[in-house]
Structures are given as C-alpha cells and as structure tokens.
C-alpha cells in the first residue's frame, strides 16, 4: 500500500511520534530535558541529522546493500553512516559556521548513539518506503522528537518549584509526564495514520 508522503510527514510528528509511540531516543530524551534551551538545541540537531542520515541510509541500502545482497549487514552499515556523517558535520560546522557549532556542537556526539536515528532508518527498511517517503519520514520523525523533548522540558521547568515525592523526582517524574503526553497525543489519532 502506498502512503502519501505528506500523510507520513504529519503522522510521524503527531500520531506515530517516535518518542511517544515507538519509545526511541529515550536516553537523551530523559537526560537533556531539564531546561528548555538545551532541549531545543538538541532537538534542532536531531531534526537536521535525522533528515539527512535517513536519506543517506536509504541510498546506501537501495543502491549498495540490496544489489550486493548484503541486507543483513545493514545494522553495521547504518551505524557507520550515521557516525561518519556526524563526524563530518562537526568538522564542517567548526570550520565554516562557528556560531552554529557552539550551539549544536556539544549535542552532536550524543546523536551518534541516539537510537531514534538508527530506529527511523530501520523502520524505513521494514516499511519499504520510497525515496520521497523516507525523506518525509526522516524529517517528520526528527520534528516529532524535537516537539516531544521541548514539550517535556517546558513542563519540567514549570514543575521545578513544586514539591513532588522524593522517589519520583528526576526520571520517574519525566516518565509520568511523558505517559500523559502520550495519552494526549492519542487524541490526535484521527488526523493521519501510518500503522
């Protein structure tokens, strides 16, 4: 079944959000969501890297791995593509855009081990997306991830001053907020569906 790329784009932001329904990228999602500014920085970096690596991985998979019948190597290849791209991006930014490098630079190494990036590439293979669909999915996935982390950081900043039980502070609280967010996002499920 061919799904319209526009549908995929919006669905991966709202109804099939990669954090709230697929639980990807949780480690950095929980760790970096203490303040709004750095969560937005990381969010931007994820949007950018996810869009481009999804496309790179699509091209590598379709034109190198499939013709050579090496599909089972995709895990290794995808991770190398992501790591190499992030390394390259770091060098390019440092050389040509120092301003941007200072805002995004510290987040880039984190992204290599962000399972959302690899997860999107693997979903793309499993769902047999075309080039345009992969582009929409990569961009939508990144925006959805950024949306979720910024929303969580905003809520955590507001709740910072209130008293919550000691055992719940930190990750426990973040998980409960995320759970409520996931329930709220179910309300949007009429818009578009890809699963």
């Amino acid at each position: 079944m061919y799904i319209n790329p526009i549908v995929i784009f919006f669905a991966s932001i709202f109804t099939s959000n990669i954090v709230l329904t697929n639980f990807l990228g949780m480690c950095s999602y929980l760790a970096i969501s203490r303040d709004l500014k750095s969560s937005w920085g990381l969010g931007q970096a994820v949007i950018f890297v996810m869009t481009i690596t999804t496309i790179l991985n699509y091209l590598v998979y379709k034109y190198i791995l499939v013709p050579a019948e090496l599909e089972y190597l995709r895990y290794i290849v995808f991770i190398i593509v992501v790591a190499a791209f992030v390394q390259l991006l770091e060098m390019v930014l440092e050389r040509f855009m120092p301003g941007l490098y200072y805002t995004l630079g510290i987040f880039l190494p984190l992204i290599t081990v962000n399972c959302a990036i690899l997860g999107v590439a693997l979903f793309m293979v499993i769902r047999e997306y075309t080039f345009i669909q992969s582009l929409a999915y990569g961009a939508g996935g990144g925006i959805g991830w950024a949306l979720a982390i910024v929303a969580l950081a905003g809520i955590r900043e507001k709740v910072d001053e209130t008293k919550i039980p000691k055992g719940l502070q930190g990750p426990g609280f973040a998980l409960i907020v995320t759970g409520i967010m996931a329930m709220a996002f179910i309300g949007l499920s009429g818009i578009a569906n890809i699963q």
Partner: peptide, 25 residues
C-alpha cells in the same frame, strides 16, 4: 485497553522506579 497502549509503559516503569527510589532514600 490502556495497558496495551504505549502510554501505560511509561506509567508502569515510572511507578517501579518511584517505589525503588523511595525505598532507597
């Protein structure tokens, strides 16, 4: 039905972490 949906995973894990950390503190 909520237990089948993704949201419940967050709640169950959060409650376990809460219980363990409360006991620890």
């Amino acid at each position: 039905t909520i237990m089948v949906m993704p949201a419940s995973a967050f709640f169950v894990l959060a409650i376990i972490i809460w219980a363990v950390q409360a006991r620890q503190s």
